[in-house]
């Protein structure tokens, strides 16, 4: 067996055993480095007789040509392999630890989106109100039995000031400023003397909508409400209107929707009472309008399946973390 054949066998055996990039590099150095066995053999060719020199030279050069690139390739492959193995893809990554919005904000944004697309402009109003805006202008004179429906917080040492019991004062404030067509929405907090329990809170959020123009009828109200419910809870949601009483609308209705097999009351609405229009100097003979109001907590409770209204103000992270968007 020639020297070249021996070397080839040795190299092949060593490659067989090698696995790490270093192993391959060591083999390369051992045989093809400056002092490598193959390099040395090539150098010692000159000591061979001339007739043998050519054949041996060809064999050794073939070795170099074949194995040197192969070892480099194997080394690179081994490197990639070693590199790949180094990532424990089950170890948690460096996460973006993002906070999220309160569920009431989520619902508020959805409501704003739906009504903005219908041309409603969102307006604001104070939470501390006068008796006129909260009651009288809305057709609830002093001692009116309808005041029983709202248990009111009053401001100490400031007679005539109270915490608004509903968002409807914004109707009056808006119509005092803007003449028809009026198409506004408002979302804000309201206050009632109700101790906390699973379905009551002394402060909660309401959404109010108002549209006053020539020729507005209950038909427009129904269309708007149905559109809203479909957008929020899905098209085809079963909805029913039932008569009820609000001092500031006539006719008035309560809207129920069927959700998971149960009828849920979700909002109150009606045609703006002619006296309310008169109170803000709008001629009810010329203009009609509709208004509606709903509890934002109630919407969120239905939408997300929340059973206790206290969760909205408790601010427990175990609650808040569930509303990722």
């Amino acid at each position: 067996m020639t020297e070249a054949e021996n070397l080839r066998r040795e190299i092949e055996e060593e490659i067989e055993k090698a696995s790490s990039p270093e192993d391959f590099e060591n083999i390369r150095i051992k045989y093809f480095g400056k002092k490598g066995l193959v390099t040395k053999a090539l150098k010692s060719l000159k000591d061979l007789p001339i007739e043998k020199r050519k054949e041996a030279g060809a064999l050794l050069n073939a070795l170099k040509k074949e194995f040197e690139p192969l070892l480099k390739k194997k080394r690179e492959e081994a490197k990639v392999k070693a590199h790949k193995k180094s990532w424990d893809y089950t170890l948690p990554g460096r996460r973006i630890l993002k906070g999220n919005l309160h569920p009431l904000t989520l619902v508020e944004l959805k409501i704003r989106e739906i009504f903005s697309s219908l041309g409603f402009k969102f307006v604001d109003g104070p939470y501390i109100e006068t008796d006129w805006y909260n009651f009288e202008a809305l057709n609830v004179p002093p001692h009116h039995p309808a005041r029983e429906m709202h248990d009111t917080f009053y401001v100490k040492n400031m007679p005539g000031l109270l915490l608004r019991t509903h968002t409807s004062p914004v109707q009056i404030r808006t119509m005092e400023k803007i003449k028809p067509p009026v198409r506004v929405g408002h979302i804000g907090r309201v206050f009632r003397v109700d101790a906390f329990d699973a379905s009551h809170a002394p402060a909660f959020t309401q959404f109010e909508g108002l549209y006053v123009d020539k020729g507005v009828s209950f038909r427009d109200l129904k269309g708007t409400i149905m559109h809203f419910i479909y957008e929020l809870f899905g098209k085809g949601t079963e909805v029913k209107f039932l008569p009820t009483f609000f001092p500031f609308t006539e006719p008035s209705a309560e809207v129920y929707m069927k959700w998971k097999g149960e009828w849920m009351e979700i909002l109150g609405c009606g045609m703006v009472h002619p006296r309310v229009l008169k109170n803000v100097g709008i001629d009810p003979e010329k203009y009609t309008g509709f208004a509606f109001g709903m509890g934002v907590e109630r919407i969120a409770m239905i939408k997300y399946g929340i059973k206790d209204i206290r969760l909205f103000s408790e601010n427990n992270l175990k609650f808040l973390r569930q509303f990722k968007i």
Partner: peptide, 13 residues
């Protein structure tokens, strides 16, 4: 939000 802050809503009293 990206700073990891969670929004809360508390009662105004």
């Amino acid at each position: 939000l990206p700073g990891g802050f969670f929004e809360i809503k508390s009662v105004e009293f």
